[in-house]
Design a protein around this nucleic acid. Structure first.
Length: 483
RNA sequence: GACCCCAUCGUCUAGUGGUUAGGACUCGAGGUUUUCGACCUCGCAACCGGGGUUCGAAUCCCCGUGGGGUCGCCA
């Protein structure tokens, strides 16, 4: 019987939920869901200076938007502050750590000097490492606040089988006896992480590549405590188009930005999942359930991936077309929200639904969907200049629009069929009267332009019905002003 | 600089010793005579370089090169 998977996402609340962080969270979440395990959220707020409640909120909101809710209460790292401190002393008690009374100022100077001289700085703890514990404790009592605690790095090397990279081996000669408890009595990140991961019984740590160098240090703490070492997997970075780690200057990096841009959470998830993972066949557009089903650790890529906005938009368009219109309305904030932002309080739910229905297969974002749907509800203020030139080059186009307006006005039943019949009849009559063939397009294109101001869009007769007789007639008659 | 990680079309990727190196985004060309940024069809475009191993290498090994990450009493 395999033990239940327990994974976590552990961001520090110092900004917004970054897409890189979201991707890390997603992989953990997908794996937990896939294996029926537990996904936990831990807020690493030990940096009191940089941590803010707003950032905590932003992370929570972002996670919720992406539907990645933790299975257990959120753990704030600071609440285990005392346990972290206790762990440092326990390590000291066990002889795995020692008190360092050296002057940090002097050590800093040494380091700076050596880096300047292009030499490798390493803390030399030889004068403290082997002092008997009882003596160390005596001196600690006598000189409170004058020591830090460092982990004693043993001889040898540390090796682990990384879930994504395979075997990684670090020689201990590369490590120095790192501080676990500062002189001000506060524990350091690498120690707190181990303490909390052990406390939360995390058995798989999936995190960013940038933590590879922390891993041997953390494993050494587990080993010193005789704790079971979790599995580790290090996810590659997400890069900007210039192949440099994605950052603010590449544009939107907070998941909230994409929400504002009209991206669907399921599209964002789908996109993020495809950044560093692929199902193995040619499937690309996947629902969340499908993703959960197919996700596997073995197929995670080791190579950093470039964040390609184009593909996100394409995927978003795919998801929008597949989402039932009713749900799309909810995603836009509901009917009332839509009415308010577009100033169309008089519309019925059916009218709104119908309009979105017509546009949803040809837009890339929710914002686009609303602004195109609006064209149905409101008379156009501007007209596509190129289109105007092309469609109204023939002066007869104006008359065609007016004739169409008159014919539509007389219709009792205003449907796709009836309007199409009327239009085609007009084209035919004109053909006979003039002796040349007038294709229906000569009516259709100018008509579309007058109705929507655009040269693109859904089929004309669907549009005509959605706009409604009265508005159609009114918009068509504006062709008079084109002369 | 040291250590670690990475390397297939511009981008996301499939490929685990024998493939015309496949798909997707983008881009281009056609088609759809009701348009289009939608849809359909087609097309452009890649194994970083050099050595091995092997009958045979994108795939395995080594060396380069390039990119990235980490070197804090930050997280």
């Amino acid at each position: 019987m395999m033990q239940q998977v327990r994974v976590r996402f552990a961001p520090s609340p110092t900004g917004y939920l970054h897409v890189g962080g979201a991707r890390t969270a997603l992989f953990n979440w997908l794996w937990a869901r896939h294996t029926n395990g537990k996904f936990l959220l831990r807020i690493e707020d030990t940096d009191q200076l940089r941590s803010t409640p707003e950032a905590v909120e932003a992370i929570l909101v972002g996670m919720k938007w992406l539907q990645m809710e933790p299975d257990e209460p959120v753990l704030f790292q600071m609440t285990r502050h005392q346990e972290h401190i206790d762990l440092c002393y326990e390590l000291l008690e066990r002889g795995a750590a020692y008190a360092d009374f050296s002057d940090p100022e002097i050590e800093n100077q040494k380091r700076e000097a050596m880096t300047k001289a292009k030499l490798q700085y390493k803390f030399d703890g030889s004068m403290y490492r082997s002092i008997p514990i009882s003596e160390q404790k005596k001196r600690m009592e006598n000189e409170p606040g004058n020591f830090a605690i460092r982990l004693k790095i043993p001889e040898g090397k540390t090796q682990w089988n990384d879930i994504v990279h395979g075997s990684i081996e670090i020689n201990h000669a590369e490590l120095d006896d790192f501080v676990i408890l500062r002189r001000d009595g506060t524990p350091v990140y690498n120690l707190a992480v181990v303490s909390d991961d052990h406390f939360q019984q995390i058995n798989l740590v999936l995190r960013g590549d940038d933590h590879i160098s922390n891993t041997p240090k953390q494993i050494l703490i587990y080993q010193a405590m005789n704790w079971e070492v979790p599995k580790f997997g290090h996810l590659p970075m997400i890069l900007g188009t210039d192949k440099v780690k994605l950052s603010k200057r590449h544009g939107a990096t907070a998941v909230g930005d994409y929400q504002k841009l009209g991206i669907l959470p399921e599209a964002m998830i789908n996109f993020l999942a495809l950044l560093g993972w692929a199902p193995g066949d040619d499937t690309e557009v996947m629902s969340i359930d499908e993703l959960i089903n197919r996700f596997s650790l073995e197929r995670i890529n080791a190579k950093a991936a470039v964040f390609d906005l184009q593909k996100l938009y394409w995927l978003n368009g795919q998801h929008i077309s597949r989402t039932p219109t009713k749900q799309l309305i909810d995603k836009c904030g509901g009917i009332d929200q839509i009415k308010e932002t577009t100033g169309t309080s008089e519309l019925t739910v059916e009218q709104i639904t119908k309009s979105l229905e017509l546009w949803k297969t040809r837009v890339k974002t929710l914002d686009e969907l609303i602004s195109y749907a609006q064209i149905i509800w409101k008379d156009p203020l501007t007209y596509d200049q190129e289109g105007l030139k092309k469609q109204f080059q023939d002066p007869k186009a104006i008359n065609r629009c007016l004739a169409l307006a008159n014919a539509f006005e007389k219709l009792e039943t205003f449907t796709h069929e009836s309007t199409e019949a009327v239009l085609r009849k007009l084209a035919e009559e004109e053909s006979q009267a003039s002796g040349e063939t007038i294709p229906a397009g000569r009516y259709i294109h100018p008509c579309r332009l007058m109705l929507t101001g655009l040269t693109v869009g859904p089929g004309l007769f669907d549009l005509v019905v959605a706009i409604g007789k009265e508005a159609v007639v009114r918009r068509l008659r504006k062709a008079q002003q084109l002369t």
